[in-house]
Structure formats: C-alpha cells, structure tokens
Write a protein that binds this DNA or RNA. Sequence first.
DNA 1: GTTAATATTGTAATAAATACAAACTTGAAG
DNA 2: CTTCAAGTTTGTATTTATTACAATATTAAC
Lengths: 145, 145
Amino acid sequence: MSEFVGITTENVIEDLRRADVRPSTARIHVLRYLLTKRNHPTIDCIYQALKPTLPGLSRTSVYNTIGMLSRAGLVRPLSLEGSEMRYDAFTEDHGHFKCESCGEIYDIDVTIPGDAVKDLDGFTVTRRDLFLWGTCPKCTGKKQS
Amino acid sequence: MSEFVGITTENVIEDLRRADVRPSTARIHVLRYLLTKRNHPTIDCIYQALKPTLPGLSRTSVYNTIGMLSRAGLVRPLSLEGSEMRYDAFTEDHGHFKCESCGEIYDIDVTIPGDAVKDLDGFTVTRRDLFLWGTCPKCTGKKQS
DNA sequence: GTTAATATTGTAATAAATACAAACTTGAAG
DNA sequence: CTTCAAGTTTGTATTTATTACAATATTAAC
C-alpha cells in the first residue's frame, strides 16, 4: 500500500500508540503523509494533499493534529521564514538548508562538537537547529547554463 | 547623547552611508535603536519604542526601513518562531538561544568547524544560523526556588 | 530656492494562526 | 447491540503579521 517500504498504515498507528496519541483518522493520515513525503510541508500543503482522500477535512483540523503530533514529539516544527511554519516528521538532530532561488528545503547532516558552542553554562537545551540559506546545486546549474 | 560609547548618531549615519543607504530620519533612528538596544526586537517593538521620539512614524515605515537595512546587510532577520520576525543588527556569525519559559533571546558564541556539515558539495551558503531552544539560567533558578 | 528622485504615511487587502461552540466519533461497559 | 462519556473534528469568527499602493512629504543636487 505504502509508497515506501516500512511505512505502512499499521506502522503509523503503532507510532501513534507508542507516543500515547489516539490513532484517529486525521492523525494517521497526517503522520503518514509526513513520514512518506518528507518535503517539509506547510499546514496548507498537508491540507491540500489530504483533502481528496479525506473530503471532510478542515484546515483547523490540520492545525490541531500537527499541534498534537508536535507535543507528542512525533513531528518538529521549523521556522525558516517567519511567515509559514513548516513541519518535519524526522526528529533526529539535523540541519536545514533553504534555497533562496527555488525555495526547496534540504535536510543536512550536522555534527556540532560540544566545544563549538561556548558559554552556555546554566542553559538547558531541548531543541536545536542549524539553518543554512543559499543556492542549491540545481539552481547553480541553471544559472550557469 | 548615546547610551553606549561608540554608537553616536554620527556613527550610525556613517554606517548607513558606507552601505549606500541614504541616512533618512527613520533609518537613523531604527538602526541606532538596533545597535544600542540589542534585544532582537520585533517590528512592533521598534515601532512602539520609536513612536514617542518620532510621532509621525508608521508601522509600514518600520517594515520598509528594516527591509532596506536587511538588503543592505546592516541587519539580519531571524525567524525563531514562525509568526513574528525578529531582527538583529549584529551580523557576524553567531547563534541564537530562545528561552521557552520567558521568551528571552540570547546571542550565543558558535564556532562550527568546516567538517561539521557534510555533503554540501554544490551548495552555496550565504547565511547560516544555529538556533537553540530550552530554558535559560534565570528561569531554571526561578523553578528551583 | 527649485526640482527630480527618493522616503514615508496611512489605509486597505491578504493570509496565517487561534478560539470556541456545535456536531460527530470512538470505544468501553452494561 | 445500545448507551454514554471522553475525546475529536468542523467551521465560523477573530486576531495579528505582512504586503500593496497611492497620496504626501522629504532629501540632496543643482
């Protein structure tokens, strides 16, 4: 059924249960969407994508669902531009690159050594993100040709 | 005149001229505000703070001014939450910590080694930011007492 | 001072996010 | 199977950040 091996509806329900989130229809579909398409969608992206499958879906529901999934730690919000929030089902530590030409967002591997961040005595860090902006290879290629 | 040594109105005008930005009243006041108070204000903070001094100031002007200063590289926008953009006159490479308890934003020293970010062949990076979220020492203290 | 170029104002429009009450689901207990 | 209470979802209304734009004002070179 799933486009990707290992991400079946059953798996998604399992994920939800493990995080103590009741596996309702909306939640299953939203999380499944985020896990299969890993394109950092906005609320509206998710809404538009799921509308055909779930005709009764409302934008507010997507907000609620995403809020629930974020609180449960299954999804992490990222604020790259300040206007439209984006969401990522991939919660392991990694960075994000936003191409200023095409708008595409890429996950990037980051290993920040402990001594890179100084003078943080007394601070408790619960979440971190390295954001990079610039031009992606695709767009660099286009400009040159 | 200035609350801080070294940031006089003349200095600010100099900064603007060097960046090829005409030193108009609004621009001088906004940049001077950002350079002296380094509190990552929102557009509305700046507007409210400067209103008494510049009675005719409009919110739109602050947007325009900040837009100009950003394009000129004198100010850098940071998106920490996705709803309200924040701005920083400090454009050297550094990170940001947002306290989830009191909302305060702290500048943090960061030295990210070249090899910390992998697989970025072909990407041109023009801007980067390490964001940290968590609890600041002040709030940690409050909770314990 | 005049003039042309540039900045600013203020209103109106757009769009994201939240609040909330009414309607609907869900799943366990009788 | 039916009922009930708890939890979800909907859809409208509201709030708030941001942008668009035309009218007005300011700036700086001549």
